[in-house]
Design a binder for these strands. Structure first.
Length: 597
DNA sequence: AAAAAAC
């Protein structure tokens, strides 16, 4: 029988226990009738993971409706770990024993906005959001966080986050992940995807029994979360720390451009959930400072980006060529707002009989974002931007409460536009990949706090970053790919709030005309007549082609041009679709805060 | 053609 990982850590601190290999009983559970239901045992184990939250060990019955044989298989994986000094080679054991955990809920940086904070999540706007799932035996959605027993400590963190009820993607994705199923999930930007994959991972780690980490000085994370940019990894790390506060689950982040030594120290102190960018992780793997052999959960955020040409080789190396358990042994979850069919096909290499979930149209923008397209010649872009900014300033929508994010195509372009804006009296900062990590983080912070309410950015800031109070996204240069456009404008209109997106369009963007006008039509936006003419002129059918119809949620396994040999991919014909089925809308309460990011 | 991601 496999010892819980937590138990083994504790046992390592207690040589007698380790020698006998008998299950470690934490002090607060000694002298009780011996109780061995797995749920309670694992809770006790988690309590031993180094939190001093008293009352934690109170047995909490786990509603494991969906915990199937998959979960059992996973816990049984890796027979290793019968011996040895346990975690961290005798340097004090797990987390150096109940070290004081920093409270992540002190928001020192949200001062300027405190008045405005947490008002008016617009749930009604999501009432008729289309939801589609496909795959075998899809677990039904939940309506409240109470319907999912994530454990007392996580519930408390949900309360601290002021989440009142789950967002649509959370309602569907969390039960699927808790059931141990692989998942490919598409949900609109700003709809709460991070929590959707973090909660099940944290809960699974708290409840699971895991073998002892086999070697000292090597980190053996149980969960790996990969993202395409350093800032996004930081953000996910910050979120995950909140969700796992006082659960004993340790979250560590690793990314490039920052001193590796501090990250190594954090890893040595023990890690359950590792959040990383691919490059730094490969480095750590090659240095043998991290092993993936105990990974039970793999989550790719912005998964379509992670599997595109630029990243795919690194991801394959990490997932397929190192020591990570194969699909079916680990649980894999892919999340993004966009999921091109060809990437879906590629992604199925990493998944095992997965469930496809689409909440809202795949790759759709939300109709909470007002989208405008203006015809602007290349040479007129700067003065046109100036006009927009002046108009904003006159309307009083300039400043700390209304940030403007300006996307450009190149790093040089970002530098020069930033400089030009500053010269013209608009406090701006810029972020791109040629800046030092320090400069990048400073720029983002200066923008978030409203110190420089304008930020010029390359696509480094296009995905995932949650920056409250971005009122306006300007596509100074449009991207070539409509999916990139969707992610860029998704920096505004988050958490059910409205936003404005303005794009400067000219002949250079004609290849985008058709997909842009289609996207705007779907989102009930006004398409200028001249853009429709551009769209009609352009030949359509390349990469930017999107399917039609009112359901965007399309599992490529259901597309006849992809599913020859469908049995390989697609376990069954079970599919359900509905409009937020399960009475989501009946819970609508204006002004309620939610887990929307 | 550009952007991102390790040292």
């Amino acid at each position: 029988m496999a010892m819980s990982w937590a138990d083994s850590v504790s046992a390592a601190e207690n040589p007698a226990g380790a020698a006998s290999k008998s299950a470690y009983v934490p002090p607060h559970l000694r002298n009780r009738p011996s109780i061995e239901p797995p749920a309670q045992a694992s809770y006790a184990g988690a309590a031993a993971l180094g939190n001093d939250h008293s009352g934690y060990g109170v047995p909490n019955v786990v509603g494991s409706r969906w915990s199937g044989q998959r979960t059992e298989n996973r816990s049984g994986y890796v027979g290793g770990g019968g011996r040895g000094g346990g975690w961290n080679g005798g340097r004090g054991g797990w987390d150096r024993g109940r070290e004081r955990e920093v409270n992540p809920f002190t928001e020192e940086d949200s001062e300027p906005f405190s008045e405005q904070e947490s008002s008016g999540i617009n749930f009604d706007a999501y009432e008729d959001i289309p939801v589609e799932t496909s795959g075998d035996n899809v677990p039904p959605p939940v309506n409240t966080f109470a319907d999912i027993d994530l454990g007392e400590a996580v519930n408390e963190n949900i309360r601290r986050c002021k989440y009142v009820k789950p967002t649509p993607v959370q309602r569907h994705a969390i039960p699927i992940s808790l059931a141990g199923r692989d998942l490919m999930a598409c949900a609109q930007t700003g709809s709460g995807k991070t929590a959707a994959f973090c909660f099940p991972i944290i809960s699974g780690i708290m409840r699971g029994h895991f073998p002892r980490p086999p070697r000292p000085r090597v980190a053996f994370p149980l969960a790996l979360i990969l993202s395409p940019t350093r800032e996004l990894s930081c953000q996910i790390h910050d979120e995950a720390k909140k969700f796992s506060y006082q659960t004993g689950v340790r979250v560590v982040v690793a990314y490039g451009g920052a001193p590796i030594n501090q990250q190594l120290r954090e890893l040595e102190r023990g890690v359950h959930i590792l959040v990383a960018t691919p490059g730094r992780l490969v480095d750590l793997l090659e240095r043998a400072r991290v092993s993936l052999q105990m990974i039970r959960y793999l989550a790719l955020d912005e998964a379509d980006r992670m599997l595109d040409m630029g990243f795919e080789p690194q991801i394959r190396k990490i997932v397929q060529q190192m020591d990570m358990p194969p699909p079916g042994v680990r649980q894999t979850m892919l999340f993004s707002a966009t999921f091109p069919k060809e990437i879906q096909r590629l992604a199925s290499d990493f998944l095992s009989s997965y469930i496809f979930l689409a909440v809202g149209r795949v790759g759709s923008s939300t109709d909470l974002i007002v989208q405008r397209v203006e015809y602007v010649q290349e040479t007129d872009k700067r003065s046109h931007l100036m006009d927009l900014l002046h108009a904003q300033r006159e309307n009083g929508v300039h400043g700390k409460q209304a940030l403007t994010l300006v996307f450009v195509e190149t790093k040089k372009g970002a530098d020069s536009l930033e400089h030009w804006l500053c010269m013209n009296g608009f406090p701006a900062t810029a972020i791109h990949g040629d800046r030092t990590q320090q400069e990048r983080e400073y720029a983002l912070r200066s923008f978030k706090t409203g110190h420089t309410p304008i930020m010029v950015a390359t696509d480094v800031a296009a995905r995932g970053l949650d920056i409250p109070h971005v009122a306006h996204v300007v596509n100074f240069d449009l991207p070539n790919d409509i999916d990139d456009y969707v992610h860029r404008i998704g920096r505004t209109g988050r958490a059910g709030k409205s936003g404005l997106a303005t794009a400067f369009f000219n002949e250079n963007n004609s290849s985008l005309a058709r997909s842009l006008s289609d996207l705007m039509t779907e989102a009930n936006q006004e398409v200028p007549a001249w853009l429709s003419r551009f769209a009609a002129r352009s030949n359509y059918g390349g990469k930017n082609r999107r399917g039609g119809g009112r359901f965007g949620g399309r599992d490529f396994r259901r597309d006849s041009s992809y599913n020859r040999g469908a049995a390989d991919y697609y376990g069954g014909a079970n599919m359900s679709s509905g409009y937020a089925s399960g009475g989501y809308s009946s819970h609508g309460a204006a002004g309620v805060t939610s887990a929307w990011d």
